[in-house]
Design a protein around this nucleic acid. Structure first.
Lengths: 132, 132
DNA sequence: CAGTATCCAGATCGATACTG
DNA sequence: CAGTATCGATCTGGATACTG
């Protein structure tokens, strides 16, 4: 197997991006890692229907109101979810996953599953490393 | 299409993990997103041969010595790269990608390519959002 | 050469309190 | 109900200086 071919396509593609596009790509990858984005998206996808702010907050256990608000705004800004406001009293706001958001989840899932499946490998690697 | 099936496997798998395993899984996903890990791994993979610290630093443009050291240690700890020290003066240290590291890159690549290909979608989404 | 040590700026996130 | 505002602890990463 030729190691140099792994990720080569990604590197080539990366080189073809402008600085701005590259920064945005990084940004999207980074989004994966922040504490609540992926979880929030998966809740909206799993529900398959619009969800109010408070329902999302219930399902994303442990998130603070502030962090959830920020997470939802970022996801909305990037076109991964939609936010619909109803002019009612008390106010109602509904969040839904978009087609782009679903696409993103689909492309993340294989990687995520692989990591979870290999969790034992990482545990032993760390044990070996720490016990040296 | 049934939205509720997207990412469902990941959620199920996630539920089956212990708290410790779940934390580790998050950790690995987070590793992806930090500023230099993916880039560093892709450099080692693309080279396909052991690389000295200073060579890695040249190719991962913009990384500081401190950040590169930290990145390399984390990757080593997780079994994604190896670090070989030669008892010479001046000291020589060589880094290589592992099979596990290559596997990880292979599972990340599709997602990464998808993001890069959709960079225009994200740009217009942001432009729409900001101009409202 | 390949780090370590120290300092510092900025971002992140939770807790808490307040509001249209 | 769905936020915003503020504070503080914690983390991240860069710059700089020093060392086996």
């Amino acid at each position: 197997m030729d190691k140099s071919q792994v990720f080569a396509a990604a590197i080539d593609l990366c080189d073809s991006l402008t600085e701005e596009e590259d920064a945005l790509t990084r940004d999207m990858v980074t989004r994966l890692a922040d504490k609540w984005s992926l979880w929030t998206m998966s809740v909206l996808a799993a529900t398959g229907a619009p969800l109010r702010f408070s329902r999302v907050m219930e399902q994303v256990e442990g998130v603070s109101q502030k962090s959830l608000t920020k997470t939802l705004r970022q996801l909305e800004r990037d076109g991964l979810i939609t936010r619909k406001i109803f002019a009612e009293v008390p106010p109602r706001v509904e969040y839904s996953i978009t087609a782009l958001g679903l696409e993103m989840l689909r492309h993340v899932e294989p990687f995520y599953l692989w990591v979870a499946k290999n969790v034992a490998n990482f545990q032993t690697a760390r044990a070996d490393f720490d016990g040296r």
